[in-house]
Design a protein around this nucleic acid. Structure first.
Length: 278
DNA sequence: ATGGTCGAATATCGA
């Protein structure tokens, strides 16, 4: 089972690139963030035609918005109203894979604005509150549940998750207060960062490069903002992980690239639904 | 220290 998370930065604009990602990675489940359209405007039929008969969308006009695409049947699970707002940052589904269930949380954490001070910057306060609610959310789960949490968490926790630890200490996404809050969240039930579990912590890994760089590839001033976490019950089943860096170099790219994690399931995947031609 | 570029919606705001 391959899970992909991608901040697509407009689903309608980048539908063709999404199909390219699907072609390249052949995922079973795709979590999208920043789809930037109302729920009813999401191109669901094109996604079904692209091999994902099961689509859940939580959208809104202009900003945010999340969606889950699945080759397997899934049912939506209601989540909390994060920070008392209805701003389409979370969608949850239980996916059934041949008698085995897995719950997937798709999250888009607030970016937090420019000033890393909750007193001076309401957006940063919102981000910190969202992270605290993340702790409360995972506290209500059991450590025996098979669960995955994926999304744009807008925090690069490790020194190797940013191009310069020293230069980003005061930059929202890598400040000690955010990194500590993310660590508390992840540790709540002993969740595991699957990307680092598979690839180790030594190498620099990024999933986002600013649009403002003259040459994103050469300057390579990236950050790893997109994550796939596994519950402690699921973490031993993780068999692979990766980041599709090349997608940043495609024509008309998102500023984020897809991040994927492979999970071993006891039940074999139904062959007929693996390919879009089926 | 500053400005650089995107997307949505159409002047700015959010990232």
């Amino acid at each position: 089972m391959r899970f992909v998370t991608w901040n697509i930065n407009s689903l309608r604009l980048r539908l063709a690139l999404l199909l390219q990602v699907i072609d390249k990675l052949n995922p079973d489940v795709v979590c999208l963030q920043e789809i930037k359209c109302p729920t009813e405007a999401a191109p669901v039929e094109a996604l079904v035609a692209g091999g994902f008969p099961h689509v859940l969308v939580e959208g809104m006009k202009g900003y945010n918005g999340v969606a889950i695409l699945s080759r397997y049947p899934m049912t939506r699970i209601a989540g909390p109203n994060w920070c008392g707002r209805d701003d389409a940052r979370h969608i949850c589904a239980r996916i059934s894979v041949g008698g085995s269930d897995i719950t997937v949380d798709n999250l888009y954490v607030p970016a937090g604005g420019d000033v890393p001070d909750p007193q001076a910057n309401e957006k940063f306060a919102h981000k910190l509150q969202f992270l605290d609610e993340g702790v409360r959310y995972l506290s209500a789960t059991s450590s025996s549940e098979r669960r995955l949490l994926a999304g744009d968490l807008n925090i690069a926790p490790l020194e190797t998750d940013v191009w310069s630890h020293r230069q980003l200490l005061d930059v929202v996404s890598h400040t000690p207060v955010e990194v500590a809050a993310l660590a508390r969240w992840q540790a709540t039930r002993g969740w595991v960062d699957t990307t680092r579990q598979v690839l180790g912590s030594t190498d620099k890994l990024y999933s986002w490069w600013s649009y403002r760089a003259k040459d994103w590839d050469t300057s390579d001033r990236g950050r790893r903002l997109d994550h796939v976490w596994a519950s402690p019950a699921l973490a031993p089943a993780v068999t692979g992980a990766g980041i599709l860096r090349e997608a940043r170099g495609w024509t008309g790219p998102s500023d984020h690239v897809p991040v994927w994690t492979d999970i071993a399931f006891d039940a074999p995947a139904p062959k007929a639904s693996r390919r879009r031609t089926a």
